[in-house]
Simulated assay, not measured.
Amino acid sequence: MAVTLGVPKETTETENRVALVPDVARQLIGRGMEVRMQPGAGAGAFFADGDYHDVRMVEEREDLYREADVLLKVQPPSLEEIDLLGPETAVLGLLDPLGSPERVSRLRDRGVTAFAMELVPRVARAQAMDALSSQASIAGYKAALMAADLAPRFFPMLTTAAGTVRPAKVLVLGAGVAGLQAIATSHRLGASVSAYDVRPETKDQVASLGATFLELGVGASAEGGYARELTEEEKRQEQELLADRIADMDVVISTAAVPGRKAPILVREADVTAMRPGSVIVDLAAETGGNCECTQAGETVRHEGVLVYGPRNVPGRLPVHASEMYARNLANFLDLLVRDGQWAPDWEDEVVAQTVLTREGSVVPETVRERVEGGAT
């Protein structure tokens, strides 16, 4: 029988994205798969049920979960959702593998085969499946727009009859995918942009986008394009060297994160105090603790006249393109799992092997298994 894909309505209150958009659903059906959805699943991303041609709508969530061979998700399934899944079901989505040991252990105990899109290896052939990068690019773009909206001054330089307005000074902390998009967008808006990253090899990328790279002499590159966690001495050195630069900025956009760990503190409370009143900090790392000591996830904090904003789920604020990009990531990954409409994953394939989270009653990645067995939170 053909593989049946199930797409439920996301249960997270603030989530507007959907795991499958009409164009991608049509492509998957053309590859021999069946697609079933919960009515209204695409509404938050402005896709009506009628846009999904040849997709069967299943009213009851329980029926959808029972009928699906592969469940496609954006947010991780809740414990209640996992309990609706059987051992023959596979789940594919952003599963936050290191964020909730209880959820991973429930997937394991239910015998579910789960693939966490966060674990897709950063190799050339997997770029089209890299959901972290696709969603991070959206977050970086939106962060620059949010900063410009919150700032009480223009981003670009303007020459007017009333005089010349100097461009806003923007500092982007972290030059990963989100940071680079924030740099590019801030530059397009006309700001004077600087950027910092602990990986010195990002200097050329930063410069190519029209920004100035801050060289502080702290290097912490790691495998896979990520940054390793700094030592305590390196953290102290980094914070001290950044302090003077931060104080001179009108806007700081922070994007620094270490997978599976609390976000590093780059902007101390004293640094915020030293900034000019009316300055703005947009902290994209808010959901993992924040890069700024003053950040409160989901809140806008005013500290000594400085606005510190810690937005949640930024990609979900551009749900149309975020859903389109994410759906393509999933469809490209499904190419490794389904052949001629039949379930046929190649478990020897490095991308499949490194992305699988739970299989046959076991937690596969060692780092996740250690956290689950240790009861870490």
Rank of each mutant, 00 (worst) to 15 (best):
R36D: 01
R125Y: 00
T255H: 07
A256E: 06
T159W: 09
G217V: 15
R110V: 04
P167K: 08
E366F: 07
C292T: 14
G289C: 04
P200I: 13
L132I: 02
M57E: 00
T273Y: 15
T355L: 00
A45S: 15
E304P: 08
F333Q: 06
V18R: 08
L173C: 10
G111T: 00
F333M: 08
A286N: 06
E304F: 11
A147P: 10
E59V: 01
L171H: 13
V91W: 08
D244V: 12
G278W: 07
T367C: 13
G111V: 00
A263D: 12
L242K: 06
P311K: 05
G176T: 09
N291W: 04
M1C: 01
R153P: 05
T12C: 04
P259H: 02
P200D: 13
P87F: 04
L79R: 12
V112H: 00
R122W: 03
E118P: 00
H321K: 10
G225Y: 10
T164Y: 09
L318F: 15
D49P: 06
N313W: 02
D96P: 02
A116H: 04
L119Q: 00
A19Q: 06
A247F: 01
K235T: 07
L357V: 05
E215Y: 09
P311W: 05
R108K: 14
M117S: 00
Q237F: 02
A162L: 12
V363L: 06
E370R: 15
V55T: 09
M117C: 01
G260S: 06
P315A: 05
R108Y: 09
A126Q: 00
P8M: 11
V123D: 01
V123T: 08
A297H: 03
G140K: 07
V267F: 08
V7S: 05
A256K: 02
L334I: 11
D83R: 14
G40A: 12
N291I: 11
E59Q: 07
R125L: 09
A211W: 10
G298H: 03
Q342W: 03
A270I: 12
G30Y: 08
Q75A: 15
I265G: 05
A48I: 03
L92R: 05
V18D: 05
L284D: 03
L95Y: 05
L84A: 06
L284W: 05
H303M: 13
L242V: 15
Q354V: 00
T231A: 05
N313C: 07
V351Q: 01
P152K: 09
L28R: 03
A144C: 06
R276M: 10
S137F: 01
E366R: 15
Q296F: 03
S323E: 02
E223V: 06
L266W: 09
F333I: 03
T202A: 14
M57Q: 02
L330G: 01
D250M: 08
V193R: 14
L5S: 02
A144L: 01
L5T: 03
V258W: 03
V364A: 07
A90V: 12
H321M: 13
A19K: 01
R199A: 11
V18W: 05
V74M: 12
E240Y: 11
V3H: 04
A256F: 04
E67L: 04
L173Q: 08
V338Y: 07
Q135H: 01
V120K: 02
